[in-house]
Design a protein around this nucleic acid. Sequence first.
DNA 1: GAGTTTGAAACT
DNA 2: CAGTTTCAAACTC
Length: 619
Amino acid sequence: MQIFPIKRLARQLDFTQGVLPDHPQSQPPPLQKSPLLVSPAAAQSQSQSQPQPHPQSQLQLQPKVVEIQVEPQQQQQQQPVRAVKPESPKSIPIPNTELKDGTPKKQRQCNCKHSRCLKLYCECFASGTYCDGCNCVNCYNNVENEAARREAVEATLERNPNAFRPKIASSPHGTRDSREETGDGLVFVKHNKGCHCKKSGCLKKYCECFQANILCSENCKCMDCKNFEGSEERRALFHGDHGNNMAYIQQAANAAITGAIGSSGYASPPVSRKRKGQELFFGQAVKDPSFDRIGHFQQGSHIKPPAPCSSLPSNPIGPITLGPSKITYRSLLADIIQPQDLKELCSVLVVLSGEAAKTFSDQRNSMEKQVEDQRETLLASSTEERLQNHKESDADKIVANDCSSTNHADKVSPDDSSADGADMPKGRPMSPGTLELMCDEQDTMFMAAASPHGLMGQGCNTYSQLPCGQGMTEAHAEQERIVLTKFRDCLNRLITFGEIKETKCSSLARIELGNQKDPLSNGIGNTRTGTGSQRRPFSNGVVKVVPPPAKPTQMVTSIVSTSDTLTTGPSLDATFNTLADGVAFVNMLNLIWLFLNGKGFFQLVAFIPIHHLYIVSRL
DNA sequence: GAGTTTGAAACT
DNA sequence: CAGTTTCAAACTC
């Protein structure tokens, strides 16, 4: 029985609120750089078909992650596709380089020595990825040390619930006007916390704003900031014929900092000089189709500010994430599926499951009674003994037919239940993770199933009286068939919603493109025109079946223990044991929801237990 | 590549 | 919350 500290619970509650979309009034600061289990290398491997460093532990919850960091004038002299943070050539380790087509070559490698890669000092840890091929020493940020890693994550979140949230936020006020005001680039983002630079003039990569290629904002508390709109020092860095010459840029930065360049009449520019609420978008830096899609819908979302579609101001995960190294992806369905939907879906499935159990039980009892009556009648006449045996045989055939039909029903919906091991019926091969999970949860599930409070408790009590558990198996199969069918229908509706939304957003984008002809929208529009019309929400990676989490046992254990500890009503664990793995089923729902909302691993770990509790508490 | 600088993160 | 220390990246030579 796992203890669930109140403090942690409170943090997760708060955290959970943070991932609820479309409730701006209760939203924490925008969450964007979703710490994924998708390491850059892993993400990249998707496009390069390379084996993943930790295929069993890193969820591919999001499509390829790229970043945009190039100002138009730079871009003109750079590779046609520039989708990497502005590393100085000198400082870019080889693994950080990229292919000429813009595909990141390999993930960033840290060099931590004293932090065990379990603190935010470590870029890998901070970005939510395992260290892979890094040069770190005594690294604990790996699968082998998952326990320590998780502790570190919890500790970090305890210190700062937003620790793994993106530092670079999309501004809700990004308008065409604000972009036009910017002479040297388009700003759509700003640093959430702001920098605190003192000596770098915010013109070196020590500055997180500069590193992210964004202007300092009112959030910053920097001194002698020269990273603001209109700054000649800043302009000197990027303008001229040295767009891609980082050595020159750095030289210019040094000159700017020391006052050799620019008017610098103001030691520290007035806050008003800093961009406030403006957003910068560094041109059409990214050609990744998924990014085009993101950008497209971000623009689309601006058209309807208060609409739920407007994910930038309200949603913890904006469609564009301009972190130091990543852009996260946001599903079309992010605003469609809500926690409430999951709760309701689970409730419906619970009810259906219960009804199925009851119906099956009634049928079974009726049939048995009928058979028993016939048997008694037949026993009264010894001469009819053969007839009695014959009828018993008929009854068995009925049961057998039910089983076969149930098995057939299982086969009806393989497509919608392909989450790894989340719903295997008996006889279907289970993944190692689920097998492990089943071993861990078996006792709990059976105990819960035997609970008089559990919906399944009634059914199980009934079926448990049947010989050899045959009745229970059949009832479970029937319940599974019904629940999975319902779930499939739900997913199909989601597909429909996604298609509708895509159509709407596409229309809005075309309208927008017709009204404004800036390079940004043109680039997006062109790309969009080329591929978007043929996309379907579930055919391009928007939604995919996700593998089990890194350590499903840990996660599920906490779920079960949480619900067992804190709930008294019907338990999902009890209800869904008919799915052979109810906990995994709930996990799957959560994973889908989290994926749709662009959540990452850390949110997942922190979110699932409380979300499960949330669901259970409402049953 | 070693040493220095820098600022975020962590700690007190 | 402010000051200090630790840390790793950025930078310089």
